[in-house]
Design a protein around this nucleic acid. Structure first.
Lengths: 232, 232
DNA sequence: GTCTATATAGGGATAGAC
DNA sequence: GTCTATCCCTATATAGAC
């Protein structure tokens, strides 16, 4: 009996992520940072700011996006924005930090319960792609702006990248120990897999133009990786 | 009798690309743009400007790089720079334009002479990776700065991306017609291959830290793609 | 809690001396 | 052909009114 593969909609419903929810978590995680006390007001504005920042920065780059752009897009004044951010660079940190935490948490939760390595790898691929589809703007932002971060934050981004890759490497190694995969360099396999996962959100528009949805893409990546990993 | 696979050093020697050579071609292609008449002087300075721009822009992003940064790095004055560029944005166009042309020309030259699709695909993968290794700074720059371009230039970048992908797709289709590859979606296969090729220059430092060189990477990508494309 | 008005610095670009 | 000096604008950030 083969399990029905995870679908995007099921995953989305289960996960229940929203910009409002992310803004709320961001507010609570960094309460000391914000001048605004009332959570309701703060979350609403923060959500607006996040949304606008991701849109503008993903269009023309974070450093090319001015706070005047952001002020116009959010409908808030320049002064008003500074009740939520200490500086422009704060914004990058906030967005990146929450994105990394959310990704690691979701990937951990989702892959922990599956014993069979082959099934676990399939599931991990689908979950990662679906999550990047739902949080497309966050993933794209983190990918593109990582190199503009300060040394400390950059280190964090590199660590997060490695963390994800390690997750895949360990699943592949488990599959090899179980005799389900042949003996090939698991780190290289994980690196190539990661490249394929990233391409989904980096080239999102290309795939849209071709009517390739994320579920089809997931199956293609799984097929490619399995033909490589399995014995001939 | 199997042919010895192309090595990076052989390719590099054959190709003979240098920053000076690229600067010279850029000068001749855009003679009207430059105020400086003496080719020797112009090429030397242009080469310096290109080198510095790629270094600075790849470190912190083109839009975050100021012309004052560039002036300091090149040792030229602000006014002096303007003998070579009409505006800061000119620089992006120049670099991108020559990069695209060089890539398309080299790929065309190198893949035209090989009749067997399987061998042609292998060769195309190696050539693309080796070229991106040699022109790493150009490839990285084009990849990262493409979205900051004006509409016209952006279109050009997208067209170039498509052009490369089409090259791979056509080789795969030829292999399918010859019965060497199984029937799988050739466009999707080409897209995934392209993602793997791009990852080499985007994550160059990661691979260096792992002592993975471009020749090893090429063989891994070839092995992965062939296990997917060939009959079981 | 949010606004307007403004301080201060740094950006791209140019004029004109040499 | 290259430099110095400077123009003018836009950037981030803050002060203080409401």
């Amino acid at each position: 009996m083969t399990q029905e593969p995870l679908s995007l909609n099921v995953f989305r419903r289960e996960l229940g992520l929203s910009m409002q929810g992310l803004a709320r978590q961001m507010y609570r995680d960094n309460a000391a940072r914000f001048k605004v006390q009332k959570e309701g007001v703060a979350v609403r504005n923060l959500s607006n700011i996040l949304d606008a920042t991701l849109t503008l920065a993903n269009r023309k780059g974070f450093s090319a996006m001015s706070l005047r752009d952001l002020s116009e897009k959010t409908g808030m004044s320049l002064g008003g924005l500074y009740a939520y951010i200490g500086s422009k660079d704060d914004l990058v940190e906030l967005i990146q930090g929450l994105g990394i935490e959310t990704t690691e948490r979701v990937m951990q939760e989702q892959t922990a319960g599956i014993a069979d390595p082959v099934e676990r790898l399939r599931h991990a691929i689908r979950v990662h792609l679906f999550l990047s589809e739902i949080l497309r703007a966050w993933f794209y932002f983190s990918y593109m702006e990582a190199r503009h971060l300060g040394a400390q934050q950059k280190q964090r981004a590199v660590a997060a990248e490695l963390h994800t890759e390690t997750l895949y490497r360990e699943i592949i190694e488990a599959g090899q120990r179980a005799g389900q995969y042949r003996e090939t360099d698991p780190l290289m396999a994980a690196a190539m897999l990661k490249a394929l996962l990233q391409d989904w959100y980096v080239k999102r528009n290309k795939f849209r133009d071709r009517n390739v949805d994320v579920e089809q893409y997931a199956e293609s990546v799984i097929e490619l990786m399995e033909s490589y990993l399995k014995d001939e």
